[in-house]
Simulated scan of single mutants.
Amino acid sequence: MKVKAHRNGSDAEASVLTRDQYEEELRVLQIELVKLQKHFLCCNDKILVVFEGRDAAGKDGTIKRITEHLSPRETRVVALGKPSDRDRGSWYFQRYVQQLPTAGEFTLFNRSWYNRAGVERVMGFCTEAEYEEFMESVSAFEKMLVRSGIRLIKYYLDISKAEQKRRLASRRKDPLKQWKVSPIDEQAVSLWANYSKARNEMLQRTGEVVPWSVVRADDKRVARLNVIKDMLHRLHYSGKNYRLVRPQAEVVFPYDEKHLKTGAIAK
């Protein structure tokens, strides 16, 4: 299975997987995920995976495939809504701390404290001082999480402008996806350059303690499979099938500024 190394913003990459191939590979990876969960339940591990990315980048679908066959008692998906007045008057990280995993728990954040570096920054929902305070303190916050025993992994799902536009248009037409449509989504394409600038600064300045992994997500199926592979590859568990969990380096890769110049990250 190969994916083009070069990305052109006007062409969404065609899937190289048939649906049957995708479903077959997904099933064996989901079996590996069950092995992982059995292992960290025995060891009382605390696993936290953060998903960030553009609107319509595929965070919901990726998380759904990860959690589909895991125990709902020990698996939590956190997708916090608009902060309340009390939240706005509290320490910025406070409402996220309440959602952190306990021993034997697997927690996935569908957007996270990085809202401040993305949506809040672009849409003007925070002040410049609040933004800078966040950027200066987030590494210390994540260092505390890691030192407390939390295994933290951060993914940024990246898509081209043309693909985002196509997905948002499709979302508006689908009666089953109306809950995904929001006023912020409507501005995602027009504010593309602003979001790119905010993304670049976030990836550059907040990877010191826990580096970012970028996921090329124009092809949803390939992206989902490779996120699962990458996560399984990083985490220790008994009975791992190493042959199955090798992610494609051109789909999931550590952030590096050079990727902005090569086109591996959408401009």
Rank of each mutant, 00 (worst) to 15 (best):
Y195L: 08
N241A: 06
E142W: 03
V189F: 10
K165L: 14
L225M: 11
D218H: 11
V181R: 09
H233R: 07
K161D: 12
S238Q: 15
I159F: 11
L145M: 13
G239H: 13
P211K: 08
S213E: 00
V209R: 03
Y155A: 01
A140E: 14
D174C: 08
A140M: 04
I159R: 01
Q187D: 08
S238V: 14
R216W: 11
K197N: 13
V138F: 03
L145G: 05
L168Q: 08
H236K: 11
H233L: 11
A162L: 02
P183L: 01
S137V: 02
V252A: 02
E132T: 00
H236Q: 15
E130G: 15
A223V: 02
S170R: 15
L235F: 13
W212R: 09
E186A: 15
A140S: 15
V210M: 10
R221P: 02
S190Q: 14
R205G: 06
R246M: 13
L244S: 09
R167G: 07
V252P: 04
R216Y: 10
V214L: 06
D256S: 12
N226D: 03
V252M: 10
A223M: 07
R221S: 03
L152Q: 05
L244W: 07
G207Y: 05
L244N: 13
Q204W: 11
Q164L: 10
P183R: 10
D174I: 03
R171D: 12
S196W: 14
L244F: 11
V227S: 00
R246L: 14
G239T: 09
A169I: 13
E132C: 10
T206I: 04
L244Y: 02
A223W: 02
T206R: 02
L145F: 05
R224P: 00
V215N: 02
F141Y: 03
Y195G: 03
D158R: 01
R147A: 15
Q164I: 10
R199T: 00
D219H: 04
A198M: 07
E142L: 08
E130V: 02
E250K: 01
K165P: 01
M202R: 07
H233Y: 12
S190L: 09
I150H: 03
R171E: 08
G207R: 09
L168Y: 07
S139F: 02
S160E: 12
K180P: 14
W212K: 12
Y156Q: 05
K220T: 04
F134M: 13
I153P: 03
K240H: 01
D230M: 07
D230Y: 05
Q187V: 09
R224G: 03
S160N: 01
A249I: 01
Y242E: 15
K229L: 07
W212A: 03
Y155P: 06
E257P: 05
G207Q: 04
L235Q: 01
D158E: 06
L157Y: 06
R216F: 08
Q178R: 15
S139Y: 01
N194R: 11
K143V: 00
D256C: 09
Y237L: 03
L176S: 00
K220S: 10
D185Y: 06
R151P: 00
F134L: 06
A169H: 12
L232E: 04
R246I: 12
S213I: 13
